[in-house]
Simulated scan of single mutants.
Amino acid sequence: MQERVRRSVNAAAVAGILAAGALAVPAHAEAAAPAGYESCPYGKVCLFEGWGGTGARWDVPGCGNWTVPQWMQNLGVSSVKTYGNAVDLSITIPYTLGYVGPWTGTNLSAQENDRVFAVHVRC
């Protein structure tokens, strides 16, 4: 008899919670936007203002040499995400500052941080 009472109390509690909408799930719940390095589109090289792929992001348009846009230079580059292509980071072309291999997300070293002026995407 005692067990029957517990079951009815638990069933009543669950019914009350559901009726109050405490466990309601939105009908059209949207997936969270990717964050950090995962926000970089597949196949691109992305430069980020912050550590760990955070802050403003510039997607390098494609293979070859590119000057980092002035707005990104003003913010400074602190981290890089690459997919299939490696990238050389430069103070000015052809002076190489650093290298980031393919399939990598990394913070720049203290010597590289906020100094990237140009990139060369290896294809």
Results as ranks from 00 to 15, higher is better:
residue 1 M to I: 13
residue 1 M to G: 15
residue 2 Q to T: 14
residue 3 E to W: 13
residue 4 R to A: 14
residue 5 V to Q: 12
residue 7 R to D: 11
residue 8 S to I: 12
residue 9 V to H: 09
residue 9 V to F: 11
residue 10 N to G: 07
residue 10 N to K: 11
residue 10 N to Q: 15
residue 10 N to D: 09
residue 11 A to E: 14
residue 11 A to F: 03
residue 11 A to I: 01
residue 12 A to C: 07
residue 13 A to I: 15
residue 13 A to S: 11
residue 16 G to S: 14
residue 16 G to Q: 14
residue 16 G to R: 14
residue 18 L to Y: 10
residue 18 L to H: 13
residue 18 L to G: 05
residue 19 A to W: 11
residue 20 A to K: 10
residue 21 G to Q: 04
residue 23 L to Q: 06
residue 23 L to V: 12
residue 25 V to D: 05
residue 27 A to R: 13
residue 27 A to C: 02
residue 28 H to D: 15
residue 29 A to Y: 10
residue 29 A to H: 09
residue 31 A to H: 08
residue 31 A to D: 13
residue 32 A to I: 09
residue 33 A to N: 05
residue 33 A to R: 15
residue 33 A to D: 13
residue 34 P to C: 02
residue 35 A to K: 14
residue 35 A to H: 08
residue 35 A to M: 11
residue 35 A to V: 15
residue 37 Y to A: 06
residue 38 E to T: 05
residue 41 P to W: 12
residue 41 P to S: 03
residue 42 Y to L: 11
residue 45 V to G: 08
residue 45 V to N: 07
residue 45 V to P: 02
residue 46 C to E: 02
residue 46 C to A: 06
residue 48 F to V: 01
residue 49 E to Q: 15
residue 50 G to S: 00
residue 50 G to I: 07
residue 50 G to Y: 05
residue 50 G to V: 04
residue 51 W to P: 00
residue 52 G to C: 00
residue 53 G to A: 00
residue 54 T to P: 02
residue 54 T to E: 12
residue 55 G to A: 02
residue 56 A to W: 10
residue 56 A to C: 00
residue 56 A to R: 12
residue 57 R to P: 03
residue 59 D to R: 04
residue 59 D to G: 00
residue 59 D to M: 05
residue 61 P to Y: 03
residue 62 G to H: 09
residue 65 N to T: 06
residue 66 W to P: 00
residue 67 T to S: 11
residue 67 T to V: 12
residue 68 V to Y: 02
residue 68 V to F: 08
residue 68 V to Q: 05
residue 69 P to K: 08
residue 69 P to A: 04
residue 72 M to V: 08
residue 73 Q to W: 09
residue 74 N to M: 06
residue 74 N to S: 08
residue 75 L to H: 12
residue 75 L to G: 10
residue 75 L to E: 12
residue 76 G to C: 04
residue 76 G to L: 06
residue 78 S to W: 02
residue 80 V to A: 03
residue 80 V to K: 08
residue 81 K to H: 11
residue 82 T to Y: 08
residue 82 T to S: 05
residue 83 Y to R: 04
residue 83 Y to E: 04
residue 83 Y to Q: 07
residue 86 A to H: 00
residue 86 A to M: 01
residue 86 A to L: 04
residue 86 A to Y: 02
residue 87 V to E: 01
residue 87 V to Y: 00
residue 87 V to D: 03
residue 89 L to S: 03
residue 90 S to K: 14
residue 92 T to Y: 11
residue 94 P to A: 05
residue 95 Y to C: 00
residue 96 T to D: 01
residue 98 G to P: 08
residue 98 G to C: 08
residue 99 Y to S: 03
residue 100 V to E: 01
residue 101 G to H: 00
residue 102 P to A: 12
residue 102 P to S: 06
residue 103 W to R: 10
residue 104 T to S: 07
residue 104 T to R: 11
residue 104 T to V: 13
residue 104 T to C: 05
residue 105 G to V: 06
residue 105 G to M: 02
residue 106 T to C: 03
residue 107 N to Y: 01
residue 111 Q to W: 08
residue 112 E to M: 12
residue 114 D to M: 02
residue 115 R to W: 09
residue 115 R to A: 10
residue 117 F to D: 14
residue 117 F to S: 11
residue 117 F to E: 13
residue 117 F to I: 09
residue 118 A to M: 12
residue 119 V to A: 01
residue 119 V to Q: 01
residue 121 V to Q: 03
residue 122 R to Y: 04
residue 122 R to G: 00
